[in-house]
């Protein structure tokens, strides 16, 4: 063996490049994969729950998931082929967008709308702005809002069947109409309640989110600030009247996809701030808007809108809340 190795010659050319010469093993695709894995239990739970409502619902949930994920990847590929850009479907970000979109849809939705949503998410919200890293709103959320606005009845609360198969109100609607007493907090936590495909199980979303924090895929700032703000306001000023209502607070943070939004959508890298202080402020703003929309607007749900609105502020948050430079006096701007 040694004899052979002795023949290795010195190369004629060496690569001269700027330092550093090594790098961390994590890649964009790896991070996206981590998020996908963290979402998977909640998604599977949603599909299984749909099957327990009725096999038609279950099958539809499964089809929605496949259509969204495959559709998003397809549209990304298609757009990049047409515009002759390098195909980037391998970075898994389109797959993740599709997954998030599916989880934000009611299980009664016709798959055609899901396909339309995928096209909107990938082509309009993402690729028209330059592709990964250059979109300024979360594509999955933009697509959800697009569908909510365009197809009101298909996306409305009537579309959420109860466990016995009849149409029912989501916990948020019950809260809004003052029927909070009818809610079982435990069922909401585990996820046995009506809601969109992926938002029902607060517990599995929480576990997935905690995994992402401990795996250092996302930082704690946004989810803690977001959920903390919602919890604080709903605790002190419950909509049920009076002050300091723990039960109302619990129902508020367990419902309406707050977990999904706080851990998986508000933390979307591309459309959230990078400075630690900016992340905290961003989380607080998302929380404030969510509660305001739930309290004062016609729509029962505020998570999607509030994140989308805060997406627009990211550049300014990062710019004005950038970290104090090392060695710079406190309070002094560079």
């Amino acid at each position: 063996m040694d004899e052979q190795n002795l023949e290795i010659e010195y190369p004629e050319r060496l690569v001269v490049a700027s330092s550093p010469h090594i790098r961390h093993k994590d890649t964009t695709a790896y991070l996206m994969l981590q998020v996908i894995l963290a979402l998977t239990p909640a998604l599977i739970f949603g599909i299984v729950l749909a099957f327990t409502v009725g096999w038609r619902y279950g099958l539809n949930a499964l089809i929605l998931t496949v259509v969204c994920m495959a559709g998003s990847v397809f549209f990304e590929w298609l757009y990049e082929k047409i515009t002759r850009r390098p195909v980037t479907v391998r970075d898994l970000s389109a797959l993740l967008t599709g997954m998030l979109l599916a989880m934000n849809l009611p299980i009664t939705l016709h798959p055609f709308y899901a396909l339309l949503g995928s096209a909107f998410a990938i082509i309009v919200a993402k690729q028209l702005f330059g592709g990964l890293g250059r979109n300024f709103v979360n594509p999955a959320l933009a697509a959800r809002i697009f569908l909510v606005i365009s197809f009101v009845s298909a996306m409305s609360g009537d579309a959420y069947p109860m466990l016995d198969g009849t149409a029912g109100a989501t916990p948020l609607v019950l809260i809004k109409t003052g029927q909070i007493a009818e809610l079982s907090l435990m069922k909401m936590f585990v996820g046995v309640c009506p809601g969109t495909l992926g938002e029902v199980s607060a517990m599995l979303l929480l576990l997935g989110g905690l995994y992402l924090i401990f795996a250092r895929v996302i930082s704690w700032h946004i989810p803690v600030a977001y959920i903390g703000t919602v919890a604080l306001i709903t605790y002190i000023f419950p909509q049920t009247g009076g002050y300091f209502d723990l039960r109302f607070m619990a129902a508020s943070i367990l419902s309406g996809g707050l977990m999904l939004g706080a851990f998986f959508m508000a933390t979307d890298y591309v459309t959230s701030p990078t400075a630690p202080r900016a992340r905290l402020v961003y989380g607080v703003l998302c929380g404030l808007l969510t509660v305001f929309i739930r309290y004062f607007c016609g729509a029962p749900e505020g998570v999607s809108y509030s994140i989308l609105i805060c997406n627009l502020l990211v550049y300014y948050l990062d710019r004005f809340l950038r970290p104090r430079r090392f060695g710079q006096k406190r309070g002094k701007k560079a």
């Binding site: 964009t28 970000s93 890293g133 930082s219 701030p273 990078t274 630690p276 970290p323």
Partner: peptide, 15 residues
């Protein structure tokens, strides 16, 4: 992708 790892890792606290 604006993941912010460079911001967190910068010992001079730059962006």
């Amino acid at each position: 992708i604006h993941c912010g790892r460079c911001v967190k890792g910068c010992p001079m606290h730059l962006m």
